[in-house]
Design a protein around this nucleic acid. Structure first.
Ligand code: MN
Ligand code: MN
Ligand code: ZN
Ligand code: ZN
Lengths: 129, 129
DNA sequence: TAGCATAATGATAACTGTTATCATTATCGT
DNA sequence: ACGATAATGATAACAGTTATCATTATGCTA
C-alpha cells in the first residue's frame, strides 16, 4: 500500500508515455530536464514501489535493471549487442513449454526471463560492409 | 591466447570437479581453504580468461555472475527463490523456437539466457505446512 | 481545521560485485 | 641464462543500488 505521490506519478507518467526501457539514471535525468525536482534515491524507491503495485514492469539486464510500461502483454526481449536496441517478442508456445519443463522438474514457477543477444537488422548490415 | 597458469588451472579443476554454479567469492574461498595462495583479482581475471577460451561457462544472475563446467550440453536454469537451488534443463523445441522468433525480427542471434524462477520441490512443500 | 501518526523525500554514506592500477613475480621462447 | 611478455595480488576505483537520517509532505481523526 505505498502512496502514489507527485514524484511517483511523474515517474509513472514518463514511463507510460514511452515505449522505452528506462534505467534509474535515465528517469531522473529526464524528469530533472523537464523541470521536476526529484532525487535519485526517490527514483529508485519510486520504481520499486510502482513495480510492486504492478504499475510498471522490469527486466534485469547484466549490469542494471530497466523499467517499462506494464500495460502491454507479457513479452520477452532481444538485445542488440551492437547498438543496444531492445526488440520485444512473445511466443505462446515457448511460454507453454517453459511451464511444462518446470513441471517436469517439480518446480512451481513464479516467473521467468528470457533474453536473447545478437545483432539487429541494422547492425547486421554494418557488420559485413 | 591467455596462459593456463597454476592459479587458473586450480580454478578450472575446482569447477570441473563439481556440478555447482560458483561465484568469484566462493571460488577464492574454496581455493584458499584448500591451502592455495590466490587473490580475488586473480580469480576474477582467471574466470574471465577461462570463459573466453570456452573452458567454463557462466550465467549472469541478478546480482552476480556464476560459473560452471563447460563440458555439459547447453542448458538453461531454474532458480529456487526459496533456497537458491539451481536446477538445469534443456529443451530442444524451445531452442528452435527462439531461433525462429529471432529470425522473424531480423535478429542474428549470438546467444541467449533463459532463467526461470520459482520454488523447488522441497521448498514447495515447506510453503503449505 | 488543528494535531498527529505515518510515510516519502533527498542528500549522502555505505555496500556489493567487479574492473583498473601498479609494482612485483612468474613464464616461455631464444 | 636473458629478456620480452603476461600474470599476480593488494588495493584503489567504479557502477549500480540500498541504507541512514533529518526534514517534509500526506491523510486521518478528534
Ligand atoms: Mn519490453
Ligand atoms: Mn548450469
Ligand atoms: Zn543494433
Ligand atoms: Zn528450494
Amino acid at each position: 500500500m505505498p502512496k502514489l505521490t507527485a514524484q511517483r506519478q511523474a515517474i509513472l507518467d514518463l514511463i507510460n508515455a514511452s515505449n522505452r526501457h528506462w534505467d534509474a539514471d535515465e528517469v531522473v535525468r529526464a524528469l530533472v530536464d523537464a523541470g521536476a525536482s526529484i532525487g535519485i534515491a526517490t527514483v529508485y524507491r519510486g520504481l520499486a514501489a510502482l513495480e510492486s503495485q504492478g504499475l510498471i514492469d522490469s527486466i534485469q539486464l547484466a549490469d542494471k535493471k530497466r523499467y517499462e510500461r506494464a500495460d502491454k502483454a507479457h513479452h520477452d526481449h532481444m538485445v542488440c549487442t551492437g547498438c543496444g536496441h531492445i526488440e520485444e517478442f512473445s511466443h505462446d508456445t515457448i511460454e507453454a513449454l517453459q511451464e511444462a519443463a518446470a513441471e517436469k522438474k517439480g518446480f512451481k514457477l513464479t516467473g521467468h526471463q528470457l533474453v536473447m543477444f545478437g545483432f539487429c537488422r541494422k547492425c547486421r548490415q554494418e557488420l559485413h560492409t
